[in-house]
């Protein structure tokens, strides 16, 4: 990576580094990142935990019949996820509700916290989302085999299709089953990464005087869009988890 001198000059004028915000850096000096190093990712994961606890635990400490504002937010989220799990997986999926709720509240709060200026978006990293998706994938697959035994494989054997087509369909089903964690994780990370990078690109353009109003307007617009997107992505991640869970519990449907 040879940087020419005029490139350095260009950089000073138009400093667009959309990927800088995703750098994982140790917080307390040094440059080696070991397994237990406290990094900015660790910091923002901790902030995510604190915000989630503030919302769901401190917000509900009144236990009021007529809820306060924070309590009603917590209740709305609770009822929303509860209904989602109940509608998609059915009554027998409700015992996995705490896991799905934890997943949702983590992704939602991490996404929203990541929208703060100068923050680090933990969910924009493949490492994080892939871990989440793999947890879901492994858990759902193991659960499917534990609950249904070998008949879990009927998920891949489409009995409604003509017999000649079934092996081909089974192959496609198996492939799509194993692509699930990939798309599941990349969807979330990609959305986060793309939105934040676009904001940074426009922020870089804001340096140039004559387009800065347009750039700042674009940042506002993209930011509004991103606020919507982070919530929808948390919702989508959770609802797909519910769908996969339903497949594990009732593979024949």
């Amino acid at each position: 990576m040879a940087i020419e001198s005029d490139a350095v000059e260009q950089e000073l004028e138009l400093a667009i580094h959309p990927m800088d915000q995703f750098l994982v850096k140790p917080l307390f000096g040094g440059s080696d990142i070991g397994m237990f190093t406290i990094t900015n990712a660790t910091l923002w994961l901790g902030i995510t935990v604190l915000c989630a606890i503030a919302l769901m635990v401190l917000g509900t400490r009144g236990r009021a019949i007529v809820p306060s504002r924070s309590q009603s937010i917590a209740e709305v989220i609770y009822v929303f996820i509860y209904k989602m799990v109940e509608d998609i997986t059915g009554k027998d999926g409700l015992k996995y509700f705490p896991y799905i709720f934890s997943l949702f509240i983590f992704i939602l709060v991490a996404n929203v916290v990541g929208l703060l200026p100068a923050s680090f978006t933990t969910t924009s990293h493949i490492a994080v989302t892939a871990t989440l998706a793999l947890i879901v994938f492994v858990a759902v697959t193991v659960l499917g085999f534990v609950k249904n035994g070998a008949s879990f494989l009927s998920l891949f054997w489409v009995s409604a299709a003509p017999l000649a087509l079934r092996p081909i369909l089974a192959l496609i089903e198996v492939i799509s089953y194993f692509v699930r964690p990939v798309s599941h994780s990349i969807r979330l990370a990609g959305n986060m990464m793309a939105g934040h990078a676009v904001i940074k690109v426009f922020a870089g353009f804001a340096v140039v005087t004559f387009i800065s109003p347009a750039a700042i307007g674009a940042i506002v617009a993209i930011y509004a869009l991103e606020t919507l997107v982070v919530c929808i992505q948390a919702y989508v991640f959770t609802i797909l988890t519910c769908v996969y869970l339903k497949d594990a519990l009732h593979p024949s449907h």
Binding site: V24, A41, M56, S102, H125, A127
Partner: peptide, 26 residues
Amino acid sequence: PNQIFWLLVTLVVIYFVMSRVALPRI
């Protein structure tokens, strides 16, 4: 490894706080 380790710590903490305190309360 660093990110995954801290993510797992985070998830465990959130899961315990949610399932032990927040969800029963709500």
